[in-house]
């Protein structure tokens, strides 16, 4: 198999793009997908201070590497979730990576805040993945707002986005569907959020890491076995095998033609107030994380 661009032997085959690439052309291809996502959706510019959510996995490290390579002003925030089986490994990968590429890294340790997921799991009846996601979103946003970052960037890839879209379609969840997309504008105490890797599949970010020499961790979260998104992810991967390119068409089509159908019918907007405890925007008196803290104390 030859590289589609320069005709030397290829190292990555991408049926969804009807292409194959050698190392250098693949790195250029991946860079252009990120540049296209940023430009098409006006995600950020070089004046922005960008906070990257760094977990230590391939997506967040590929994203940080690519944004740094493109000259953006980035800093990382790693949330140490306090899960004994996986958190120390994830933290090590994050610290080693940021050290190597000279990216400032901030670390928030959930154990210090009495919110380690090991303890939360024992005390809370809701699915742990849902609570963990809520805690991470809270601290990424809070840290960004309090430290004057204009944008929070996350490493969500095409598989994450399409599986989430399919899951919400299967439930016809109108609220989630109208909010779904690669950019969430800043509003009412929430920082702007962007997903510059949304055009790259998991396979493509893994190839990017390998070819860029990025050493990433793959210690799986021991609590994630009951998460529902992998079911949808695997369904879409099977579909992609039969119809290469289906995932990006599904997502692009939703953004261009589908999403507007899920916009709220009336002008009614959920009223958001600062949380009475911490000031974080919430639709109730006390935000979800402060309620969790009360449960934990």
């Amino acid at each position: 198999m030859k590289c589609t661009r320069c005709k030397i032997p290829a190292v990555v085959a991408l049926p969804s793009h009807n292409a194959a690439f050698c190392k250098d052309c693949y790195l250029l291809f991946a860079q252009r997908l990120v540049e296209r996502a940023i430009k098409e959706h006006q995600m950020c510019d070089h004046a922005d201070r960008i906070l990257v959510a760094i977990s230590g996995g391939k997506d967040s490290l590929a994203l940080s590497w690519q944004l740094k390579t493109l000259g953006y002003d980035i800093s990382g925030l790693h949330i140490d979730l306090g899960i004994p089986e996986s958190s120390p490994i994830a933290r090590q990968y994050s610290e080693r990576f940021c050290d190597k590429y000279e990216i400032p890294l901030h670390v928030l340790q959930m154990t210090d805040l009495h919110l380690s997921m090991k303890e939360v799991k024992k005390r809370v009846k809701r699915p742990i993945c849902s609570v963990c996601g809520q805690v991470k979103r809270y601290f990424f946003n809070k840290f960004a707002v309090e430290n004057q970052f204009s944008v929070v960037a996350t490493g969500h890839n095409l598989d994450d986005e399409t599986s989430r879209l399919l899951a919400n379609v299967m439930r016809w969840d109108m609220d989630y569907l109208h909010d779904l997309g690669p950019v969430m504008p800043a509003k009412k105490g929430f920082a702007k959020k962007i997903k510059p890797l949304f055009r790259l599949s998991e396979f493509e970010t893994a190839n990017l890491c390998f070819l860029a020499g990025i050493d990433y961790g793959y210690a799986p979260c021991p609590y994630s076995s009951k998460a529902s998104f992998p079911v949808y992810k695997n369904l879409l991967l099977d579909l992609e095998d039969i119809q290469p390119g289906r995932k990006i068409h599904f997502y692009d089509g939703f953004l261009k033609r589908g999403r507007k159908g899920f916009m709220p019918m009336d002008d009614e907007d959920i009223t958001v107030h600062p949380c009475v405890e911490c000031g974080y925007p919430t639709s109730t008196g006390q935000c979800g994380v402060c309620r969790l803290r009360s449960t934990m104390s």
């Binding site: 198999m1 290829a10 190292v11 990555v12 085959a13 194959a20 996995g57 391939k58 997506d59 993945c129 994450d160 998991e202 396979f203 970010t205 893994a206 190839n207 390998f210 070819l211 793959y218 799986p220 979260c221 609590y223 994630s224 076995s225 998460a227 992998p230 992810k233």
Partner: peptide, 24 residues
Amino acid sequence: QLLTPDLILAPGDKILVRDVGSKG
């Protein structure tokens, strides 16, 4: 080095197959 699916393997090759799926 990464290998594409069409590549021919040689006797004595040592191959690493790494899953790319996130596990949470």
